[in-house]
Amino acid sequence: MNIFRLAGDMTHLASVLVLLLKIHTIKSCAGISLKTQELFAIVFASRYLDIFTDFISLYNTLMKLIFLGSSFSIVWYIRRHKLVRRSYDKDQDTFRHYFLLLPCFILALLINEKFTFKEVMWTFSLYLEAVAILPQLVLLQRTKNIDNLTGQYVFLLGAYRGLYILNWIYRYFTEPHYVHWIPWISGLVQTLLYADFFYYYFESWKNNKKLQLPA
């Protein structure tokens, strides 16, 4: 564990807590894409298949349970909770996110570190996570006034993988045989997808004006 990865995990945790805070306290998911949340639930379900077979550390298992539990409960909240579901704008959240599953799965079958079920599912989760934010970014472009919590949620989500890239650079230089091109490239693609959001997010923060993504 290094400071970059810990910071990345804490940032990821913070993003989940901000979203849960928003949904649980003000009972609203305005501006939040259910499709992105469903993709994240699939990402964690396919990545943490080894949660009961490979024990890495208490921290690792605990965080996996938190990410699994929070992602599925957020999907449940938006789909089932009588108050929250009313604030979900399904007419705007129209990205065909299921179309992302097959290409990611096929790519995982073709490009992976080892052709085993767990490894292919792990690779699939990396490719899917890289594109899972797309429905949310599309929805943000359509959302007139993005509320602060939603903006902070997306910012933290983008920042966490950026911190992981620093972690991978650090591990590459400190652990001789540590080379994993697949998470590195998908993590880089994932972070680059946030580039324009980061730009407008900092602009709105610098000029102290409402966050607004151009359509």
Binding site: R5, D9, D50, I56, N60, F67, W122, Y164, N167
Partner: peptide, 10 residues
């Protein structure tokens, strides 16, 4: 070996 086998990152 263990390290190589399983992925230690979230």
């Amino acid at each position: 070996k263990k390290e190589a086998e399983s992925h230690d990152e979230l």
